[in-house]
């Protein structure tokens, strides 16, 4: 990857030089061929390329195969509850806006049990990269239908095929005011995935990245098995994510203006029925983050001043005549 002058200078000047090991704890315990491995690798390479201090990274996750992520990343982490990663991330972002926050969830985790938090946290626009590893199935609990499963998906709770059309997370996210960044990539496209994470990492605000994820164990046929035949189309724009077709045999590249919400909605609509868009779908770096908004109104007071202020408040309740 080529570096800009600024990046180069910064990298040269930094005293530490982190390698992949500095972002790795242990060998990830996902199945062979699981898309989690690719996503973790892409993230680690991106962190290394940007020489991010591991102690400044906080990775919050929910519960599911995908949510084991923080255990394999050498960083601070919080492996929370099923569906509840985002509230914890909101807390971390309010407490320590300077930390570099990453939230990782599965599709059931984020879109089903955590749906409410998902909608509202998009609206808060907290400063966090949010990765959803979407394998279109509940994997950790051994194959139950998920909100993003295609209609007819055979699973343990839908042995005769699932009944409903899937939820389209891209369209839903685009319906939230304050949305500032939506991108989609796939776990079997390492180059594109890393470039997507890089763009998301540098975004100030909530960078929502849906990663189509292979689960060879429970959903081997989703996404054409994550093969050369996957029907994707790359979105191209000057400030977008560089097109990297990887193994895809036949993926058109289309021009797309990610600053245009209507264009983004058009790309998102029916994406699962036609070709899945890959790249930056919507981008608005001007949306203020929740912590910036809130802290712009919060006074900075030292201990002494605070004690004095509290004493003054107590006077309001005094009944000394």
């Amino acid at each position: 990857m080529s570096l800009t002058i600024d990046d180069f200078v910064q990298k040269e000047e930094s005293t530490c030089s982190y390698g992949m090991d500095d972002y790795t704890t242990e060998a990830a315990r996902w199945c062979k061929g699981c898309g989690g491995h690719g996503a973790l690798g892409a993230l680690q390479r991106m962190l290394r390329d940007n020489q991010v201090h591991p102690e400044e990274v906080v990775c919050v996750s929910g519960i599911g195969c995908s949510s084991r992520f923080p255990h394999y990343l050498r960083a601070y982490g919080f492996h929370t509850l099923h569906g509840r990663a985002l509230p914890v991330s909101v807390g971390v972002s309010l407490a320590r806006p300077e930390l570099k926050l990453l939230t990782v969830m599965g599709d059931g985790d984020c879109f089903s049990i955590g749906g409410n938090h998902w909608l509202h946290t998009l609206r808060y626009n907290i400063n966090s990269m949010v990765m959803v590893l979407d394998n279109e199935i509940y994997a950790l609990t051994k194959k139950q239908v998920s909100p993003t499963s295609r209609i007819g998906t055979v699973s343990n709770t839908s042995p005769r095929g699932s009944y409903l059309e899937p939820l389209n997370p891209l369209s839903v996210a685009l319906g939230i005011s304050n949305i500032s960044f939506i991108a989609q990539t796939a776990s079997w496209l390492p180059g594109h995935m890393q470039a997507t994470l890089e763009k998301a990492w540098k975004h100030k605000g909530l960078a929502f990245v849906r990663i189509l994820q292979r689960c060879p164990v429970f959903m081997p046929n989703a996404f054409q098995g994550g093969s050369v035949d996957f029907p994707g189309k790359f979105l191209e724009s000057p400030e977008g994510i560089p097109v990297d077709k990887g193994i895809l045999r036949d993926a058109p590249v289309v021009a797309h203006d990610p600053r245009n919400i209507n264009a983004a909605q058009a790309v998102a609509a029916n994406s699962h029925m036609e070709k899945e868009p890959l790249g930056l779908i919507y981008y608005n770096p001007e949306v203020p983050t929740y912590s910036d908004i809130r802290y712009s109104k919060v006074a900075t007071v030292d201990r002494k001043a605070k004690a004095k202020l509290l004493d003054d408040y107590l006077t309001r309740y005094s009944v000394e005549s």
Binding site: G91, L94, A95, L119
Partner: peptide, 20 residues
């Protein structure tokens, strides 16, 4: 912080305390 529900409310408090 008026959260979206009580679950989120406590989650935010936990995240904040954990972060200091």
């Amino acid at each position: 912080h008026q959260a979206e529900d009580e679950i989120a409310a406590v989650g935010v408090a936990i995240g904040s305390n954990w972060a200091g």
